[in-house]
């Protein structure tokens, strides 16, 4: 566990040293704030004391921002050769991968914590369902976990960061929207399968306040799958 946290710390430090973290925070807060409070179907238009608007927007902003955080994670280490220094230190491949995963997740969590003023503001305006807010944030964190895991896998494929970014978006696109679109075109079993694969299905149910094991299994199995594939790619570079 110590070793994992050393990597997590290093990744976070690199995020903040390289301005990436600030760009993410400003970008994320800017986008989500603008669409939550000022433009489109914002909170005033909806006229309900709920964070549903914000969750719907964060659902998309995180989807686009996360690949830009994960793209360099392994690709850059490969390109500069630092992966060799890292993997010849007393640390296992798994510890490296999980450390990097947590590093990105913590940064996303920081971004989410900074949106808590939205929650305080709205709860002072009207009666808000606190349970659905908590589970909505949980949903965002779990969804981020899935995309970070996919992003790490995409980054481990080659030593090119752009490939890492685009591949993560491409794979993410399927879960984010394509499966959802396909599922509406089918009835019966195929429709249910695609609907189950779609991120929106699970995110909506959890952000409404329903924490179902079916959804948790979905999130965690995707996270694990992504990390296992990343580990396999890393192990392959040793042979």
């Amino acid at each position: 566990m110590d070793k994992i946290l050393i990597i997590t710390r290093k990744e976070l430090k690199q995020f903040f040293d390289s301005l990436m973290a600030y760009i993410l925070l400003v970008g994320f807060l800017g986008f989500s704030g603008f669409f939550t409070w000022l433009f489109g179907s914002d909170i005033f238009l909806v006229g309900q004391a709920s964070l549903q608007t914000f969750f719907a927007i964060a659902f998309w902003t995180l989807f686009f921002f996360i690949p830009s955080l994960t793209m360099r994670m392994i690709a850059e280490e490969r390109k500069s050769g630092t992966i060799e220094t890292l993997l010849t230190k007393p640390i296992s491949d798994w510890q490296v991968i999980i450390g990097k995963f947590l590093g990105t997740l913590v940064l996303v969590c920081i971004a989410l914590v900074l949106t808590l003023p939205y929650y305080f503001t709205i709860s002072s305006i009207g009666k808000i369902d606190h349970g659905s807010v908590i589970s909505g944030y949980l949903g965002l964190i779990l969804m981020s976990g899935v995309y970070i895991s996919i992003g790490l896998y995409a980054s481990s494929i080659s030593c090119n960061q752009i490939v890492g970014f685009l591949l993560a978006l491409l794979i993410g696109m399927f879960f984010h929207i394509i499966f959802d679109v396909i599922s509406t075109g089918f009835t019966g079993l195929p429709g249910e399968v695609f609907s189950y694969l779609s991120m929106a299905t699970h995110f909506e149910s959890i952000s409404r306040g329903v924490i179902d094991s079916k959804d948790l299994i979905y999130f965690f199995s995707l996270i694990v799958l992504g990390l296992v594939l990343t580990h396999r790619n890393l192990a392959r570079s040793r042979s």
Partner: peptide
């Protein structure tokens, strides 16, 4: 992992985190 504890290694081209 035991080996990695006792070895000091300078890889080819000396890769470092430049930032």
């Amino acid at each position: 992992e035991e080996i990695r504890k006792v070895i000091g290694y300078l890889p080819e081209n000396n890769p470092l985190y430049t930032d």
